[in-house]
């Protein structure tokens, strides 16, 4: 009888603990978002699934999985090959993460397209061009994309290089009718100015080293917004940007806690390395 009582007691305790765990795991944080983006934060992947994923960032696998997880879109690192093909790739030299070497702008697309990433072991994920990527996204216009334009002119004349680069961006945006769906960010004022001259409807973001310099440049150039690391911007500064009619995208969000902290700063866009969690939090 005593044994039976003990078992019953343990059983009740187990049920109680299970309920507690389920309740805690299901509880959701509520966020009061106030921003320029219709009081909603758009969830973007960082190069797709982010740097913590087993997929290398900017690969088709990483970008597509991010979109298929229900994100609003994704950020991509953009570079231009010698023959003016735009590719999604982060590093300056291909040898940093692939089985070939050389600067992206020193090689033609035909020399790059058969390369593969060297990590993780046993995989051979390919480098993808923007044309290939956009050609294969179903319901393309349901998503937004941020182009993080990496500018490495190498030995080329910077003016000629920037002109070719901005022409290539315009062409890809026009080809896929993506003017409304693309945000373009760069650290170079000259580059952004060229794009602004091409099309005043482009949504251009300065990518500054500090909030104050970003605010100054974005206001002076009448840009769409500021892209900035979450480490160097706070809620008050984002509010100042909003008061100046500037959208704010934050990056450097690499954990679930950082997703939550990022949301509390009220940005318009978050580029996260934990995109699934961000989508769940904002859902």
């Amino acid at each position: 009888m005593d044994m039976h009582f003990k078992l019953l007691h343990m059983y009740k305790l187990l049920i109680l603990l299970s309920c507690l765990i389920i309740t805690l795991s299901c509880s959701k944080e509520n966020f009061d978002v106030a921003n320029l983006n219709g009081n909603e934060i758009s969830a973007f992947g960082h190069g797709g699934m982010g740097t913590r994923s087993t997929y290398p960032i900017n690969t088709y696998e990483s970008l597509m999985k991010c979109l298929n997880f229900g994100s609003d879109g994704t950020e991509l690192d953009i570079q231009m090959t010698k023959d003016s093909v735009l590719i999604a790739f982060h590093d300056i030299d291909l040898s940093e993460s692939t089985n070939i070497s050389g600067l992206v702008n020193s090689l033609n697309w035909s020399e790059i397209k058969n390369a593969h990433y060297t990590d993780p072991l046993y995989t051979s994920y390919s480098i993808i061009s923007l044309d290939q990527f956009f050609s294969n996204v179903i319901n393309l216009h349901e998503y937004d994309f941020t182009f993080d334009c990496k500018i490495n002119s190498g030995n080329d004349d910077p003016i000629i290089y920037n002109t070719k680069y901005t022409n290539a961006i315009s062409q890809i945006i026009n080809k896929f009718n993506l003017t409304k769906n693309v945000y373009i960010e760069s650290q170079s004022e000259d580059f952004l100015r060229l794009l602004q001259q091409k099309n005043s409807n482009y949504k251009l973001f300065i990518y500054p080293n500090s909030f104050n310099s970003g605010l100054e440049i974005a206001t002076r150039m009448n840009l769409f917004g500021i892209t900035i690391s979450t480490d160097i911007v706070n809620k008050k500064q984002i509010e100042i940007a909003h008061n100046n009619n500037l959208f704010v995208a934050i990056w450097g969000i690499s954990s679930k806690g950082a997703n939550s902290d990022g949301i509390k700063k009220n940005p318009d866009f978050i580029q996260s390395d934990k995109i699934k969690n961000l989508v769940d939090l904002l859902d």
């Binding site: 046993y122 051979s124 290939q132």
Partner: peptide
């Protein structure tokens, strides 16, 4: 023996590749 799901370069659909290392 690795069986990794990657992208088929022609169809852009998932494709399992088998390799030995």
């Amino acid at each position: 023996i690795s069986f990794i799901v990657e992208t088929n370069p022609n169809t852009y659909t998932p494709e399992r590749t088998t390799n030995i290392h």
